[in-house]
Simulated scan of single mutants.
Amino acid sequence: MAPLLALRQKSHFSPQAIYVLLQKPLGLGDLLMLSPFLLELSARSHALPVFIVTEYPEFFTIPNAQWIGPEELTAGRCEHALVLSPTLSWKHARYLLHAGWVLGYFLSDHLMCNFTRSTVRYNARQSHYFDRTFPISSILDALWASPSAGPEYPVIMQEPFRAVELPETYCCIAPYSNWPERQYPKDSWAQVIKALQKYFPVVLIGGRAPAELAMAEELAQGGAVNLVGRTTIAEVAGIIAQSRIFLGNDAGLSHIAVLSAPASVVIFGCVGGKQRIPLDSELAAHIRVLGGGSSCSSFPCYNGFSRPVCNNHEQYQCLGSISPEAVVDEALSLIEECG
């Protein structure tokens, strides 16, 4: 595809629309970590309509942008449009032969473009997640206005959850991750829940995956309120925002929490936490990241695209080395610090 794209180099830039590809298996966290770029793009696109192409429902607002499903992005719509892929996904490569103008990561971590030259490469192991959009922004700088002073983050849409009356004060925990390389051990979560219940009730949140539902049911036997699989994205965002503190793995709900919870403790495994939290000092002041990557010679093992494979004799030691006591201490300390 790359040689074919080279033959379709454009000498002028005149798209009629912009489509930003953010399709699964990219998760909620990917959309949120790239949200500053989406805000910047929509602010600088002028009269060009911007479409966010994803299977997820709209759960934060990007002014002047419309959310659409992948089935709506036909070859005909691509023909006279700029198609952007701000992060690598093989699903996005199918648009290369149809798009009038392309910009982004389609086949590798090298930035691909058919209307200007670029030799930028993104280092997924070392750089912050948002860094992959800086090269895109630099190209857009040459086309449109200068960038804003710094990354801005959107407000997550929230709805009240009325099916269950929640405690007045509670700790919110999302204990599940679909990758074992990001999954804090279930037994350790059970100890964290038991310890925190001495201070306030614990509310469990999460999605509808069978493994997630089974884990939550087991963890809730100690008395936690189990709302896993019972909420919409907007409802779970409201539950997080009303909590005293949020705790979770490196997963989508944690990325909602770091933008909306009064305090957050996030446990990272295969990738560094500092490369995933918001680039905003006020938000970062309410976030603590825990990870045991320093104990692993292969850390970080996530390359930004392929699921990592743990080669250690003691698997997932980056997660198992974090004691429940350390998690609880970090949570209580952060609550005190945040008032």
Rank of each mutant, 00 (worst) to 15 (best):
P3Y: 15
L7E: 09
L7Q: 13
R8P: 06
S11N: 14
S11H: 12
F13T: 03
S14Y: 03
I18C: 00
L21E: 00
P25Q: 07
L28G: 00
L28N: 00
L31H: 05
S35Q: 12
L39C: 06
E40A: 09
S42E: 03
S42L: 04
P49T: 00
E55I: 01
F59L: 04
I62G: 00
I62C: 01
I62S: 00
P63K: 11
A65Y: 07
Q66K: 09
I68R: 02
G69A: 15
P70G: 00
E72T: 08
A75Q: 12
V83A: 00
P86T: 00
W90I: 11
A93Y: 07
Y95H: 02
L96A: 01
W101K: 01
L111A: 11
C113I: 06
C113E: 06
F115A: 06
F115D: 04
T116R: 11
T116D: 03
F130G: 04
F130H: 09
P135D: 10
I136L: 14
S137Q: 15
S138I: 10
D141L: 06
D141I: 03
L143W: 07
W144C: 05
S146K: 13
P147Q: 12
P147C: 09
S148I: 08
E152Y: 14
E152F: 15
Y153S: 09
P154V: 13
P154C: 11
I156Y: 01
Q158V: 13
Q158M: 14
P160R: 04
E168G: 12
E168S: 10
E168H: 10
Y170A: 08
C172G: 06
A174E: 07
P180N: 10
R182D: 10
A190W: 02
K194T: 11
K194Q: 13
G206K: 06
G207P: 13
R208W: 11
A209L: 10
E217K: 10
L219H: 10
A224K: 07
V228P: 03
E235Y: 06
E235C: 05
E235W: 04
A237R: 15
I239T: 12
I240P: 13
Q242R: 14
L247K: 03
A251I: 05
G252P: 06
L259C: 06
S260G: 14
P262F: 01
I267K: 02
G272K: 05
G273R: 08
Q275K: 11
I277R: 08
L283F: 08
L283Q: 12
I287H: 09
V289A: 14
S297Y: 10
P300Y: 02
G304L: 12
P308K: 04
C310N: 04
Y316P: 07
Q317G: 11
G320P: 03
S323T: 10
A326C: 06
A326D: 05
V327W: 03
V327R: 02
V327M: 01
D329A: 15
L334Q: 12
L334C: 12
E337C: 12
